[in-house]
């Protein structure tokens, strides 16, 4: 009994001591932004500015915004990373909990690549090919408006000229932001190249979304978990398979895998930066302005992140695979960071 009561007093005592404010920035959010944000955090901690390195958790974009919008005060995160823009729904949730003053920072782009083993076939894909190969329902026959379960088993059935190998694509599970972005940009992009489906978008957006963004579940698309290193291992052991992952993983594994050309453009750094390579998305982070001045270093971190030697053309994040913003956009966000520009949506 004595032990139990000591343990309880211990707990209560700690509970009291933790109410005081913290001196370390807490960051949550996207697993795609995580590898970049952590580099900045480490540099920020090592820089001679008197601030500690922020603590970063990888919770996914949605999970991060949920924690971020849960309220104000030291027990909530100061910053959340996102691999997509904040949704209207989330802005409302934030406002409901008293968070109305948020600053949005766009840090750059991330390309999504379809890659296979270096010794495998070299292919030229289109977004339409990807849609036809990976969607759950595809148009069947020549009649407009007729769809059925995806019948394609090999790539040359999708389009003559592609190799005669079975469709096997390793990709992230539905919880992943990469998967959302891939379905949104690559699949629905290809889907809308079919005239009647494009017309459907205006008529019945819901049906269009369902048709264009649902990934097939009958085998050819293999959910390989959130671990992209695992996908690369699988690609090297199965030469006829493809994988879907972020550009930074392609960049790190150039000697093992190669990215497929999509719509005539190879996934290179320059092609993604210029926007010629279509399958890419923007990366963001959001700052709770009420915490600026309360938690030490929040604004300094924000400005540190947006510096040219981090997110600029020759910056250290670029070495890690981030695709930089055009200079003018970057300048806008740099001044937003200084003035703590309020997000308006």
């Amino acid at each position: 009994m004595k032990n139990l009561s000591t343990a309880l007093t211990f707990l209560v005592a700690l509970g009291v001591s933790s109410v005081e404010a913290r001196d370390t920035i807490k960051i949550v959010g996207s697993s795609t932004v995580y590898p970049f944000a952590t580099v900045v955090a480490e540099e920020f901690g090592r820089a001679d500015n008197g601030f500690k390195a922020p603590i970063i958790e990888s919770t996914g974009s949605g999970g991060g915004l949920k924690l971020f919008c849960a309220g104000k005060g030291p027990s909530t995160p100061d910053i959340t990373n996102a691999s997509r823009r904040i949704k209207m729904k989330e802005v409302k949730l934030c406002a409901k909990n008293g968070i109305t003053d948020i600053t949005e920072m766009k840090i750059g782009f991330d390309g999504i690549v379809v890659a296979n083993a270096k010794s495998g076939p070299t292919v030229q894909l289109t977004r339409k090919d990807l849609y036809l190969a990976l969607a759950k329902e595809v148009p069947i026959g020549i009649m407009d408006g007729v769809t059925g379960p995806n019948p394609y088993k090999t790539w040359n059935q999708v389009r003559a000229g592609l190799p005669n190998i079975p469709i096997v694509v390793y990709g992230p599970p539905p919880t992943s932001g990469t998967r959302d972005a891939f379905a949104e940009i690559a699949l629905s992009g290809g889907c809308s190249e079919i005239a009647w489906i494009k017309a459907l978008k205006k008529k019945d957006k819901k049906a269009w979304k369902k048709l264009c963004r649902t990934v097939r579940e009958d085998g050819p698309y293999v959910e390989a978990g959130e671990n992209d290193n695992l996908i690369i291992q699988k690609l090297t052991s199965n030469k006829d398979s493809f994988g879907v992952f972020g550009f930074s993983f392609l960049d790190q594994n150039k000697d093992k895998v190669k990215g497929a050309v999509i719509d005539g453009v190879a996934p290179t750094f320059d092609a993604i930066a210029s926007g010629d390579y279509k399958v890419s998305r923007s990366l963001f982070f959001y700052v709770k302005n009420d915490h600026v001045g309360v938690i030490p270093g929040v604004q300094e971190y924000m400005e540190f992140f947006m510096k040219d030697d981090a997110v600029g053309e020759g910056g250290y994040l670029v070495d890690k695979g981030l695709i930089p913003l055009p200079a003018s956009t970057r300048a806008k966000f740099q001044s937003d960071a200084k003035s703590l520009a309020k997000l308006v949506r």
Partner: peptide
Amino acid sequence: IGMVAFVVDVPGGPMDA
């Protein structure tokens, strides 16, 4: 409980991240 995080500093006590 948030221990899957990027922490650069060696913790100095059980209350540090």
